[in-house]
Each structure stands twice: as C-alpha cells, then as structure tokens.
Design a protein around this nucleic acid. Structure first.
Length: 143
DNA sequence: GCCAACGTTGGC
DNA sequence: GCCAACGTTGGC
C-alpha cells in the first residue's frame, strides 16, 4: 500500500504511439527514454501509480490515464547503457481530451512542469495538478 | 570545468 | 517548415 502515491505524466507522439495503441495492446514497455530527468522520473515510479498520457505534436492534449504495472528495470532497447523503462497499462480514457491551450489558460496550472519545461518526456505531477486536469476532462476515474 | 556547436523536441 | 528551448558533446 502506498502511503503517498505520486502522479506522473508521459508524452507520446500521436502518430507514433497513441493511447489507443496502449488500450489495444493491454500493456506496454515504456522504452526509449534518453534524458536523465525523464529517466529519474521513471525510476521513481511505483506500481499502481497513475500517469497522465499526453499526445504531443498532433493533438497536444492529455487523452487518458495509464497505470504503472511494473517498476523500472534496465531499458532492453539500450542493453549496454544506463537507461530505464517501466511497464504501463491503460487505466481510463478521458471523456474529453484536455488540450495544451486549455491547460495554459488555467491559473491553477501555471507552474505545471509540462508547460514550463516543454521538452521533458516523463515528469512528476503534483496531486493538485493531476486532479485539476482530470476534472477538466469531465472524467470520473474508476476506483 | 567552461562554453560553443550541434542535435532533438515540440509548439506554432 | 520554422524556430525557440534545451540537453548533449567535444574542444580547449
């Protein structure tokens, strides 16, 4: 049981690996992260924690929530290097995607890391930010 | 250890 | 397609 669950956000290009692909596959190995900040975020994830799924490039919107189903281990796509990957499963698709423009327009999200550090592909989220974005999606999370 | 050059990401 | 931001690399 997690005393203090953390919340996360991952980015994926819409055309490369959309949320629908995760739903179709049931689970995915989140490989290919090659940035130290993003890697450290992966390593801090715990099984069961929730992850906002953001589509970069085309959609520029958070489209759903995934869940960490396995903690970080060495990234199999970089066998001799010090990178990490986790496993994600789909958790809940958003009723309405929450666009970057909508998030930028919310004072409550002014210091959201997604908005401040645009290139980071995996990041921690404050609980309040997570809750705000879920509320904006008009989605009721299961459980 | 500094910093300029370069490559990549991602919004517009 | 362009460009800003920023991370990484490599010369010194």
């Amino acid at each position: 049981m997690l005393a203090r669950p953390q919340f996360w956000l991952v980015k994926s290009e819409t055309e490369v690996y959309p949320y629908a692909a995760l739903v179709a596959e049931k689970r995915t190995e989140w490989t290919g992260v090659r940035n130290y900040g993003a890697r450290n975020a992966l390593r801090a994830m715990n099984v069961g924690e929730l992850v906002l799924f953001y589509h970069s490039q085309e959609d520029k919107a958070v489209v759903g929530v995934a869940k960490v189903s396995r903690e970080a281990k060495p990234d199999p796509t970089a066998p001799d290097e010090d990178w990490s990957s986790v496993e994600l499963v789909p958790y809940c698709a958003f009723t309405k995607p929450v666009t970057l423009a909508q998030m930028r327009a919310k004072p409550a999200l002014a210091d959201l890391m997604l908005l401040r550090q645009g290139r980071l592909s995996v990041m921690a989220l404050e609980r309040a930010h997570f809750a705000e974005i879920v509320a904006m999606s008009a989605t009721t999370l299961p459980g």
